[in-house]
C-alpha cells in the first residue's frame, strides 16, 4: 500500500529528471549514434557544463538559467575545437582507439577540475531553491520544474531543427553515408565538427540545468556517462528521438525502481538495464530509425 501511495510522487520526480536525461541522451546520440564516435567523455562534458555554470553563478552572480546561454555556446566552441584537435584523428581508427582517446580526455578533464576546485561537494543557492509547487499530495521543486521545461524545449527544438533545416539534412545524410554525402556536396568534415560541438553543447546545457538541482563534484559525470550509453542503446542506435525517450524511460525506471531496491542501488538500475537490453533486445525499445 505504501508503495502505491508513493508511486505518483516518484513518477513525477522521475519525469522531471527524465527531461534532463532526454537532453543527455540526445547529445550522446548525435555523437555516438549518428556520427559513430564512441565518446567516453560525455559524462565529463556534463561535469564541465556544471562547473562552468557554477563559476558563472558564484563569480559573476549570474542566474544559473541565464548561465545556460553562456555555457552551451562556450562548450559548443570547445567541442568543435576538440574535434579538430583530437577526435578527428581517430574518427577513422578503430572503435578501441576512439574509446581510449576519449577515456583519456575524460580522466584528464575530471582531474583537471579536481585540481582547480578540489574534490569537495559544492552547491549553488538561488532565491527560489527551496520553492515548491504542490499538486494534491505531490510536491515539485521549482528548480526541477524550470530545468525540466528548458530541457524539454531544447530537445524538441533540436529535433525540429534536425528534421527541417538544411544542416539537419546534411547531418542525417552524413550519418547514413559520409562518402555519398560528400559526393552530393556536403562539407562532411564541417558537419562532423559541428555535430561533435553540438553533442558537447547539449551535455553542457544538461550540466547547466542540473547545477541548480544537484551537488557538484569532479566525478559527478561518471554515472551520467555510462547512463547516457544506456539511453542511446534503449532508444535504438542512431536515433536522437529514441535516445531522448530512452532518457525519460531510464529516469522513470530509476525513480520507481529505487522504491524497490533502495536509494543506494538506484544507479545500478541503469547499468543492469543496459546489459539486459544489449543481451536481449539489441535493437532498442524504440526502433532503429535514424533521426
Amino acid at each position: 500500500m505504501e508503495f502505491l501511495a508513493q508511486l505518483p510522487q516518484n513518477l513525477v520526480s522521475g519525469l522531471l529528471l527524465g527531461g534532463m536525461y532526454a537532453l543527455i541522451g540526445a547529445g550522446l546520440a548525435l555523437v555516438f549514434g549518428v556520427m559513430d564516435i564512441v565518446n567516453m567523455a560525455h559524462g565529463a562534458f556534463i561535469m564541465v557544463g556544471m562547473y562552468t555554470t557554477f563559476v558563472l553563478c558564484t563569480r559573476l552572480r549570474l542566474d544559473p538559467y541565464l548561465g545556460l546561454l553562456v555555457t552551451a555556446p562556450l562548450l559548443f566552441g570547445v567541442g568543435m575545437l576538440l574535434h579538430r584537435l583530437l577526435i578527428e584523428r581517430v574518427a577513422h581508427a578503430s572503435h578501441m582507439n576512439q574509446i581510449l582517446l576519449t577515456l583519456g580526455l575524460s580522466v584528464a578533464l575530471v582531474n583537471l577540475v579536481q585540481l582547480i576546485f578540489t574534490a569537495n561537494y559544492q552547491q549553488i543557492r538561488t532565491s527560489y531553491s527551496d520553492a515548491v509547487i504542490r499538486l494534491g499530495s505531490i510536491t515539485m521543486n521549482v528548480p526541477y520544474v524550470i530545468s525540466f521545461a528548458l530541457a524539454t524545449g531544447i530537445t524538441l527544438g533540436l529535433y525540429y531543427w534536425l528534421m527541417h533545416s538544411e544542416f539537419g539534412r546534411a547531418l542525417r545524410a552524413t550519418a547514413q553515408d559520409p562518402m555519398a554525402a560528400q559526393l552530393m556536396g556536403v562539407n562532411v568534415r564541417r558537419v562532423q565538427s559541428v555535430a561533435f560541438g553540438l553533442g558537447m553543447a547539449l551535455a553542457g546545457a544538461a550540466g547547466a540545468l542540473l547545477t541548480p538541482v544537484y551537488y557538484l563534484y569532479p566525478t559527478v559525470g561518471a554515472n551520467f556517462g555510462l547512463k547516457s550509453f544506456t539511453m542511446v542503446v534503449l532508444g535504438g542506435m542512431g536515433s536522437v528521438v529514441g535516445a531522448a525517450l530512452g532518457g525519460v524511460t531510464l529516469a522513470l525506471a530509476e525513480s520507481v525502481g529505487q522504491m524497490l531496491v533502495g536509494h543506494e542501488l538506484k544507479d545500478a538500475i541503469g547499468f543492469v538495464v543496459f546489459l539486459l537490453v544489449l543481451l536481449f533486445k539489441p535493437a532498442g525499445l524504440f526502433g532503429g530509425q535514424r533521426a
Binding site: 583519456g104 580522466v107 585540481l115
Partner: peptide
Amino acid sequence: QFQQAHLLIYGLLLMLTILFMP
C-alpha cells in the same frame, strides 16, 4: 603538485599514446 588529481598524468599520457604511438 597534483595531490588527489594524480590521475591527470594517466589521462594526458593515454591521450598522447593513442594519438602518436597507439
